[in-house]
Simulated assay, not measured.
Amino acid sequence: MLKAIFFLAFLFDCGISGLTNGEEVVPKHRKVLHRGIVMKRMGMVLILMLVMAGTAMSAVKAESFGPYKATSVAEAKTCGVDTGVVLSGHLVRKVKDNVYLFSDGTGELLLQTEDGALDNVDMQHATVNVNGRIASSFMYTEVEATTVTVQ
Rank of each mutant, 00 (worst) to 15 (best):
K28Y: 00
R93D: 05
Q151R: 10
S72F: 12
V81H: 01
N129V: 14
V128N: 03
R41L: 00
S64H: 10
L33N: 01
N129A: 09
D97N: 06
V148C: 07
C14Y: 08
M123I: 15
A59D: 14
Q124A: 13
R133G: 13
N131M: 14
T141P: 07
E114P: 13
F138W: 07
L118T: 12
G66D: 00
K94Y: 09
G22H: 05
D119H: 11
V25I: 04
T146Y: 14
V60F: 03
G89P: 06
E75S: 07
A9N: 11
L11D: 00
D122I: 04
G22E: 00
E108T: 09
V73G: 08
T78M: 08
V85P: 05
V85A: 04
S58H: 04
I37W: 06
S137F: 14
G15M: 00
G105Q: 07
C79R: 15
M1C: 12
F138Y: 09
G116I: 10
Y140V: 03
E23S: 12
V121T: 13
H34E: 07
E24L: 07
K96G: 01
A62F: 07
A145N: 07
S17P: 08
D119K: 13
L109K: 05
L110Y: 15
Y100G: 08
N131I: 15
D122H: 10
S103N: 15
V128C: 05
F6Y: 04
A4P: 00
V128K: 01
A145F: 13
N120E: 05
V99L: 06
M42R: 09
L46I: 12
M123T: 15
D97K: 12
G89C: 02
L46Y: 04
L2T: 14
S72Q: 11
R35L: 09
D97A: 05
G84A: 09
A59I: 15
E142W: 13
H90T: 14
L48E: 01
Y100R: 11
A70N: 05
S17D: 12
V148N: 02
N98R: 15
V86G: 07
A4N: 05
G15V: 00
K28N: 01
V32E: 02
S58P: 03
K61E: 06
I5Y: 05
V150P: 09
R93S: 11
A56I: 09
G43T: 02
T147D: 14
T71I: 09
K28A: 00
